[in-house]
Design a protein around this nucleic acid. Structure first.
Lengths: 218, 218
DNA sequence: CTATCATTCTATTAAACGCTAGAATAGCAG
DNA sequence: CTGCTATTCTAGCGTTTAATAGAATGATAG
């Protein structure tokens, strides 16, 4: 029965969609919010032509779909489960590839010497929100916030952090989040807010993972 | 920060490990039981040299590890979560690629016209086992059965099905399972047993998925 | 210490991938 | 219809991947 191998080959084709760093960046961006080719290209630093080709490939792999809106093509993920796949892949990579561990610690341990920047897990965050002791800070750009965010989150894009401090409550523990575990925005925000005397911690995941877990969003 | 992209590139390297049909076949085989290069090569129909190269690549991707046992190298999955990744990938592929759906139906709908061969889900199976109404039949080869199987399962490798019928209870509903959703063994077994008058159905997944779900094994 | 078996390494070839740059197409505004 | 913008298509070039065959290495049994 050669159909067996055909199935695996087709499945492999889907996996190959994930087999390139630029395509992963595109998928991660689409996990925040659907977007046009142009937007996707500029937020990932690719030329438009190159981004378009990668998007075609993702489309052939069944990972994204596109629809036309006026002059623009809007791309989005076909499936919530893709976020879960990426999340698991990340876990597998972190536990089994030394290289991965090295890169992750390089990304985050700049001045984490005192362990003060430790993260908040999903369950801890849920408990904190429940009890009303925690205020949520979303440091992603406005467009991504508007396409969906955690409940009650306050949006202050990182560039405007100092300018919009009055939006943050002084009396609560603050938890900052952004695009996902490897997104540096919330990490940066935590450092800057700590220097200003706020009690802040970082959510260890991001908006897409929260959404894929089936938790409520706005 | 170029570390961001380095992380995605490393992650992409892991995904590329899954990006080839032969490697998926090797992974699926290792999900049943660890095995030597030689065994893996012959069960997947690859030359030993070629299988070895694919295994090196899986090793570099952090998906498998190897240890020496006498003259042989024994390969195994590094991580239970790999099975979950494959499972999700399969779901994404089935819902979003027409080609995939076509192949799956070709594999199974030979003479399923009356819908009699419908499958049993994990939760249904658990309920059936609980109530004692169901007997489990494992139609995989003996070595794979011995490396792990569902609780109370009776092992009759497909080739010996008719020869070992006396091991099957006549008074219970029988549920057959094998390597996974695309494995044809249990499908074939169900058809043959039905012709002999047994009440048989097919478990829609397989041993690796059961194990990865954290359910008890023997 | 040599013969044998299991595996890995090396060289080679064909195909697939990733990128660039420029041409072609689709939708829209005037 | 013309010009403008967003996107896709095409050709070309260098790199990576997959397969094969044969040489090299490692472990063990005599």
């Amino acid at each position: 029965m050669t159909t067996q191998q055909d199935l695996l080959d087709t499945l492999a084709q889907v996996a190959r969609g994930l087999g390139n760093g630029h395509r992963l960046a595109l998928l991660e961006r689409m996990a925040q919010a659907e977007a046009s080719v142009d937007t996707l290209a500029s937020t990932t630093g690719l030329t438009v032509g190159n981004a378009s080709q990668h998007l075609q490939q993702l489309r052939r792999a069944g990972l994204v779909t596109a629809s036309r809106s006026g002059k623009q093509m809007i791309y989005r993920l076909t499936d919530e489960r893709i976020i879960t796949v990426l999340s698991l892949l990340r876990q597998v990579a972190e536990t089994n590839l030394a290289e991965m561990e090295r890169l992750v610690s390089r990304l985050f341990s700049d001045d984490d010497a005192d362990g003060a920047l430790e993260t908040v897990s999903q369950s801890e965050l849920l408990a904190g929100l429940e009890s009303g002791e925690v205020a949520l800070l979303d440091v992603r750009p406005v467009e991504e916030f508007q396409a969906g965010h955690l409940p009650e989150a306050i949006n202050i894009p990182l560039e405007q952090l100092e300018a919009m401090l009055e939006k943050l409550p002084r009396d609560k523990q603050i938890v900052a989040y952004c695009r996902g575990p490897y997104c540096a925005l919330s990490h940066e925000a935590v450092q800057r807010l700590r220097e200003l005397g706020y009690r802040v911690r970082r959510f260890e995941e991001g908006f897409p993972e929260w959404k894929a877990a089936g938790l409520p969003i706005q």
